[in-house]
């Protein structure tokens, strides 16, 4: 039996859909006095259980609003589930939102340190890798300039270079990222595939591209209205999903 890297056990996630969204003390006090404050719950995930073993690329499909992003946020520790638990064994890098926490006033080099620290890299890991990141991003000429002078393509290249330098135990991929110009797109796509294919790694891969899911994934989970509709071999689940999509 392979080692389980990600274990999601009976995870339920409720969101409060506040009818009167209170963000001010004054309103809160008024609502409290008039008894108008009532809470409606919305269940985004309902008793979801899954395991991603080492070396497995697990695909995640489902229509918009099925709970895919919520599930990823629970796994990466951003949301604490209302019920159940999500365990991750080993280091996790969410390739969800590249460049989170970039500061436009700092230089590229300073942002490598800041963004790396935000992604949870240690100082000992990151410092020797700074030059490698700069080389990979092909931004050496601009690296000591403030980030506000960068184009959006340059920002994306720097962000990708920082996020992909690490070899995490668990990788969360929301669409295969290919950023920058055509040359860099090819390069980043290749690096992404290389990271996903690592045999000591567990990957959770969200996509609406069934073709890509069939190619990349070992197993696929179909999420619908917060519940697992089906899970199994990639081809099988994709076929079933496709049939339903055609029928409706």
């Amino acid at each position: 039996m392979e080692k389980a890297m990600v274990e999601v056990q009976h995870v339920t996630m409720d969101f409060r859909r506040d009818c009167n969204r209170t963000t001010h003390l004054k309103e809160f006090a008024v609502n409290l006095l008039t008894g108008r404050h009532h809470i409606e719950k919305f269940r985004a995930l309902d008793d979801v259980t899954l395991t991603v073993p080492q070396g497995c690329v697990m695909g995640l499909i489902g229509p918009n609003g099925a709970g895919k992003s919520t599930l990823l946020k629970v796994i990466s520790g951003i949301y604490r589930p209302s019920g159940g638990q999500a365990l991750v064994h080993g280091s996790l890098v969410p390739m969800l939102e590249l460049g989170s926490g970039f500061d436009a006033d700092l230089t590229g080099r300073e942002n490598i340190l800041l963004n790396g620290a935000i992604l949870g890299y240690s100082k000992a890991f990151l410092l020797p890798k700074v030059e490698q990141i700069i080389d990979y991003s092909e931004l050496r000429d601009f690296i000591d300039m403030p980030l506000k002078t960068y184009s959006s393509g340059m920002l994306a290249r720097l962000a990708f270079s920082i996020a992909s330098v690490v070899e995490p135990d668990v990788l969360i991929v929301d669409e295969i990222l290919s950023v920058g110009d055509e040359h860099f797109q090819r390069k980043s796509r290749a690096r992404m595939l290389e990271l996903m294919k690592g045999s000591s790694r567990a990957v959770i891969f969200v996509s609406h591209n069934l073709q890509q899911l069939r190619e990349m994934c070992d197993r696929v989970i179909w999420l619908d209205h917060g519940r697992i509709r089906m899970q199994g071999a990639a081809g099988e689940v994709c076929d079933a999903y496709e049939r339903e999509a055609a029928a409706t």
Partner: peptide, 18 residues
């Protein structure tokens, strides 16, 4: 997970610098 602040000394250092 990832909630232990003492493992985030490097992040703290970077944020203060920023």
């Amino acid at each position: 997970h990832k909630k232990n602040i003492f493992r985030y000394g490097f992040l703290l250092e970077q944020l203060v610098k920023r």
